[in-house]
Write a protein that binds this DNA or RNA. Sequence first.
DNA 1: AGAAATTTGTCCGTATGTATC
DNA 2: AGATACATACGGACAAATTTC
Lengths: 140, 140
Amino acid sequence: MPIPHHGQPRYRVIADELRKRIESGVIPPGALLPTESVLTAEFQASRGTIRQAIAVLREGGLATTEHGRGTYANVHLCNRNSDQRSDLETRQCEVSADTDLAALFGVEVGAALIECETVARRGKKVETVTRTYRLRPINH
Amino acid sequence: MPIPHHGQPRYRVIADELRKRIESGVIPPGALLPTESVLTAEFQASRGTIRQAIAVLREGGLATTEHGRGTYANVHLCNRNSDQRSDLETRQCEVSADTDLAALFGVEVGAALIECETVARRGKKVETVTRTYRLRPINH
DNA sequence: AGAAATTTGTCCGTATGTATC
DNA sequence: AGATACATACGGACAAATTTC
């Protein structure tokens, strides 16, 4: 018997709570989050719902999950720079809209956007850097 | 009775197949993908698995889903030659490299870069903003 | 080295809510 | 208002990677 989700969906509420814990340092950077089964017990939600919440954290770049190990809290990349980029070709994260982007998307300055960055190299030299911005989906 | 998934997971195989259809034009840009229930029938997979596959497309920027409507194939902004259709506005200008870009290109902060910005709209709504950066050609 | 336990990954089925047509 | 289509949530089962003993 599915529990209704009037208003804010359950998995987002849970994701929000976890996000607060990470950002406030209750779960320090690099530390493992509670396991899915522990979270299942704490939030009285099904495992699928917990996994959905964790997926939200991953998309926001707040956590990283490893098969068989667990989910780590990430170091927060303070406002858009700080070299966290290893040798990734493309990465995705959440950024704040600058005045330019805010005007285009019709949102407020500082609103959350998804940034997908692709680095194209020829040999070792960087040819182009492409950044694609889109609104953060309200659902999904 | 769950179906085993030795090797490549089912949802990725399905996502790959759909990606091919979008990139090859079998599903043209802007068109609706088959509904989840149709895909469920075609691939003989559960709806959850289909949704997982579509989520992969979304993350890759190949599709956009709207509640109650369906999932659209996105226009791909790959060809930078030859004018695209007029749903895309492009402008180009010179900008200064921020610390992030400077590190990538291996130049000093503030160095000149060419920024090409493309705004993709559907109707009046801005779908994506893409910014491509490259080094300014060494004089002429 | 190997077996067991732990933890995340994949997949299925079902039921109900919510937005759009 | 009804039909269609996506979103959320539950539960169960087995697979795969990691850690522990």
